[in-house]
Design a binder for these strands. Structure first.
Length: 470
RNA sequence: GGUCGGUUAACCGAGUGGCUAGGUAGCGGUCUGCAAAACCGUUUACGGCGGUUCGAAUCCGCCACCGACCUCCA
């Protein structure tokens, strides 16, 4: 495959040329959400970023198997409390629902929101609860290889033992000695040999609702395990790309690497990609911090910090305006700027469809197209792609003004240019026909004018309509 | 405390050792009976102090500030 796609690999901390293991197939695994409350702005980012990657790979001609998991198995919320209650169980108790009802409810919202954001669905969306057996099998493998130990019905990963042969901490740049001296002393960890060991299987307390039988105890799998088990099941021992939020780099992804390596004797991921966080007032937006804005709130404007509603495409545009490895700070101003920018882009595309060709051409679309590919190839630099698209906008408007000219071929390639990058790859769509206030007003005005004309003809009620209009 | 990252004009946000990113706002203009909209053009930059270099916002060092991770998190 001839392509020049370069991806920043978190593992090597370098940009690397992307080479698929088994052309034309690409295996892409992205960590999805734990479904226990409404999806928020932070969830939109990886969904959109990896959607663009997905779309771009498809555009380049790859056959992509895109796997994005759903964490629907309760994991301990607060180990410091000793008697940890997992988040889904807690929510179920609060809302008087079955745990699986909680899961379904928020999974539905998540799907609806991502659909509104115009993301393509993943090829497979495996749930942790549906892969308990696979996870148990993986635990057995790790136990057999000697990198785990059982205590009181729970199974823990032996990090120190693993570190003798492999290197623990390579993804996040952590050194085991530092971890040893710096990890806070948490209560309820007496079972572990070392504080940095992590659970593969956890024996459930009697009141714990989500639990499954296993050779060790009635319990539930450790959080990091599902991704190791499911990625390998659907993408093979070694696959191309694993993505997720930067906050998952440690410990989640580090533990995944350790588990897979311990079980299979080799690493399973070629390229690790991590998107940065969305911040609000300079702080990370997260459910656990309580400073998040849900996507439904953004779309409806129903939140104290929002001065207006923002459409799904405004959110998408806003996120694409920043590079995925940078933090992006939320503000009404920034969202409004994104909204106007996107409208300008869409308007130009509308204008383009009305343009008439000239005999000669003064514009060079090929050059622009090439620049867009270069930007995408350079670690998915969507802000640069957008800047080139706005150069295209300038051209369209100049054509309308008559300061630039182009022939039929040029017009056609300009249309293809926008179609490819705006709609196909960046995944934006024109919302104006459905929700635009201006269009709605225009339509309503037309009806009122017609009514007035009608009333005028019948000589009835015209004064009311006229005075109302003025 | 440890590890890592950031500090770019009014706001958001790219970027390269020398050549205008882009969007929004502002300003000037075109158009319009006026205005709005639209369009065209355009002013404010690279946290501080040193160093390398013919030349640094871009490389190096120190300092300041901010953030992320180290505990669940997208």
């Amino acid at each position: 495959m001839q392509n020049n796609l370069v991806i920043y690999n978190s593992l090597s901390r370098k940009k690397e040329t992307f080479k698929a293991i088994n052309y034309p197939f690409v295996g892409l695994y992205v960590c999805g959400p734990t479904v226990y409350s409404d999806a928020h702005l932070g969830h939109a980012r990886p969904a959109i970023i990896f959607d663009v990657l997905h779309r771009y790979l498809l555009h380049l001609g790859y056959k992509v198997r895109y796997v994005r998991n759903i964490t629907d198995v309760g994991h301990l919320e607060d180990e410091t409390a000793g008697e940890g209650e997992d988040r889904i169980t807690k929510k179920a108790r609060q809302e008087h629902l079955e745990p699986m009802e909680v899961v379904q409810k928020y999974l539905n919202t998540y799907h609806r929101n991502l659909d509104q954001l115009n993301t393509l669905p993943p090829s497979i969306e495996p749930r942790a609860s549906g892969h308990i057996i696979e996870q148990q099998e993986l635990i057995k493998e790790i136990l057999e290889k000697g990198y785990a130990y059982e205590v009181n019905g729970s199974v823990y990963f032996d990090v120190l033992k693993y570190n003798e042969k492999y290197k623990y901490g390579k993804l996040s740049g952590r050194i085991l000695e530092d971890l040893q001296s710096n990890t806070r002393t948490l209560e309820g960890q007496d079972e572990k040999k070392n504080s940095f060991d992590f659970a593969l299987w956890k024996k459930a307390a009697p009141e714990h609702i989500m639990k499954w039988p296993s050779p060790w105890s009635v319990g539930f799998p450790g959080w990091h395990l599902e991704c190791s088990a499911m990625s390998v099941k659907y993408l093979g021992d070694v696959f191309d790309i694993h993505g997720g939020g930067m906050d998952l780099q440690f410990p989640h992804h580090e533990c995944e690497i350790a588990q897979s390596t311990a079980a299979h004797g080799k690493e399973s991921v070629n390229y690790w990609m991590h998107n940065n966080m969305i911040t609000i007032n300079g702080q990370k937006m997260a459910r656990s911090l309580g400073n998040f804005i849900t996507l439904d709130q953004l779309f409806s404007g129903n939140h104290p910090v929002l001065t207006q509603a923002y459409s799904p495409m405004t959110i998408r545009f806003f996120i694409l305006q920043a590079h995925y490895r940078s933090t992006v700070d939320f503000s009404n101003e920034a969202l409004q700027a994104a909204e106007k920018g996107m409208q300008k882009l869409m308007k130009a595309i509308e204008t383009l469809n009305k343009l008439k060709p000239s005999a000669t051409s003064t514009v060079d679309i090929d050059k622009l197209r090439k620049k867009c590919y270069e930007a995408l190839d350079d670690d998915l630099n969507s802000p640069i792609v957008l800047s080139h698209l706005f150069e295209g906008v300038r051209i369209v408007n100049s054509l309308l003004d008559g300061t630039e000219k182009t022939d039929e071929t040029g017009l056609q390639s300009l249309k293809e240019f926008f179609n490819t990058f705006v709609f196909e790859i960046l995944g934006l769509k024109d919302e104006s026909s459905g929700t635009g206030d201006e269009k709605l007003t225009d339509e309503l005005m037309k009806i009122i004018i017609e009514l007035r004309q009608e009333a005028k003809n019948k000589k009835s009620g015209q004064h009311r309509i006229r005075s109302g209009m003025i």
